[in-house]
Amino acid sequence: MTSESLDAFVNNLETYGKIYGPVKTGESCSFQEISQSKEMALNYSRTMIPPKKFFLKLKERMFIFDERECEYEETLEDGKIVVFGIHPCDIYALKLMDKIYLDKNPDKYYQMRRENATLIGYSCHPDEYCFCQSQGTNYAVDGFDLFLHELKDKFLVRIGSEKGNKIASENSKFFMDVESSDIQEFREAEGKREKEFTLKLAINGLTDMLALSYESDVWKEYADKCFGCGSCNLVCPTCRCYDVVDNVNMDLKSGERQRMLNSCMLKKHGLVYGGKNFRPTRVERLRNRFNCKGSLREDMMNCVGCGRCTVYCPSKIDYVEVLRRVRGEL
């Protein structure tokens, strides 16, 4: 696809649903609804809130109830969307989310939205906070419908699913066959990109390192700096913890059940009956967060190296630095 066709192609995507893309909002970026490709900041580094928000909403109503009717009634809104411009790390993160939310007890809300969505990946260049290369998530092999690699005056487009294939064939006028010179250019671009990564984290054996460092003083040291504000979890593309509340209406009989993202850095995450808290202080909470992120639960790294938690931590707690301390490298 040539660079000039991008506008027209994006316009055409409307057929497949509302289009969302990375848009500049102040100093940050955010996936927002767009109507034209020029509204997007496609050279963005990362959005504050990852694309998981399309599937596991930041907050949402799950169902309504009425005591008089003794009824629970689900409230699901339906609608097709196209998420344009997702980076490889976020694609990997969604693969992890899928493993959790689409298991043998699938979450209907997530599942429906996932089925209704078209994911279009977009190539990126690392900044000083990206370490996806270390996590092995810097190149998306699957998990997308289409993936656009930006070359000099064209895009190399990879098709990742049947849905992607369908879009490509229905829009064949924008696409040209790949020439060997394109492959050469793609190879060079990728090779150059591999060298752009400056931040590295050794992940071999990290899971055991974390287990062995469970009693380490490192946790206390960083917990003293930490606010327990939860930002790190809320911006993390693989954090999936949520909390649930019931809200009653004025009639005291009807109401809704709502869920919203939660964070293990918050007091309530470990709280049970009688005020007992399994993670009473920031030391246990911070340690839990790093152990969870550093684990291979669901058979893949639970951190995709996007750098968000470091960037958006008000206290500047650096994810990679903490883990290097845990490994004894610093």
Binding site: Y101, D103, T207, L210, A211, Y214, C241, N262, S295
Partner: peptide, 17 residues
């Protein structure tokens, strides 16, 4: 909160488990 491995509130353990 969920009972089916979604909400994460019951997560425990360390990096290797």
């Amino acid at each position: 909160r969920c009972g089916i491995g979604k909400c994460g509130n019951c997560i425990i353990g360390d990096g290797s488990s």
